[in-house]
């Protein structure tokens, strides 16, 4: 269907451009002069130095919630892995030590580069074991493998996969222990300290599984 565009009638002065051009130049110059003299009205936010407050319902990097005995709440039901549209979660289950829990996760890996931060894993979890409330939105790494984060990292913000490639000796927090590490990741600890990261060994099964996708 042809679309009829109504163009405004231009006066003679407007049709010879010159006066209108100078009017436009005046507008841009006003902005320029205003911003040279005083930059405080600019809406620009100098982001990393001036972080904007995150929305109440935002979704940031995942974390695994922890039981009082220091084990993840995850019971390896695979609901999140199934719900994940990006297929970025990979869980290997094992039998739990505790009598009232049948399974737990042996490894729990999230490829943060594949993750689309949709939050379906959080919705799918019947145990409230995974949440996206770390407030971490800047994720930095030098290799793709850096972004495949594992169980310890997701629980404590540091640990095996991201930093050293081998399981970290995580102190198991007990109730009443004054030195207990926080359950939410400590911002200063793992992310931006600039320490060189070693290469991470990718579990053999991970690659094999991801190829099918």
């Amino acid at each position: 269907m042809a679309l009829k565009v109504a163009s405004p009638k231009l006066s003679f002065l407007e049709r010879i451009y010159v006066a209108e051009v100078f009017r436009g130049l005046g507008v841009t110059f006003r902005h320029l002069a205003k911003n040279v003299v005083n930059q405080s009205d600019m809406p620009t936010v100098q982001f990393p130095e001036q972080p904007k407050p995150l929305a109440v319902r935002h979704r940031s990097r995942h974390r695994l919630t922890v039981r009082e005995n220091g084990q993840p709440k995850c019971v390896a039901c695979m609901c999140c892995e199934t719900a994940c549209p990006a297929r970025c979660i990979h869980i290997v289950a094992e039998e739990s030590d505790e009598v009232w829990i049948e399974k737990r996760c042996k490894t729990f890996e999230i490829d943060l580069l594949r993750c689309v931060f949709c939050g379906y894993c959080v919705e799918a979890c019947p145990e409230d074991a995974i949440r996206m409330d770390t407030d971490e939105v800047i994720l930095v790494g030098e290799r793709r493998e850096d972004f495949i984060v594992g169980r310890e990292f997701l629980m404590f913000g540091k640990g095996d996969d991201w930093k050293t490639g081998r399981p970290a000796e995580v102190a198991v927090p007990r109730p009443g222990d004054p030195e207990a590490p926080p359950a939410t990741p400590d911002e200063d600890a793992g992310w931006r300290d600039g320490a060189p990261r070693e290469r991470i060994k990718i579990p053999a099964g991970w690659r094999a599984n991801s190829k099918e996708v």
Binding site: L32, N35, Q46
Partner: peptide, 10 residues
């Protein structure tokens, strides 16, 4: 820089 200031950017 001029274009930025004209657009109210930094």
């Amino acid at each position: 820089k001029v274009s930025a200031y004209m657009h109210d950017r930094t």
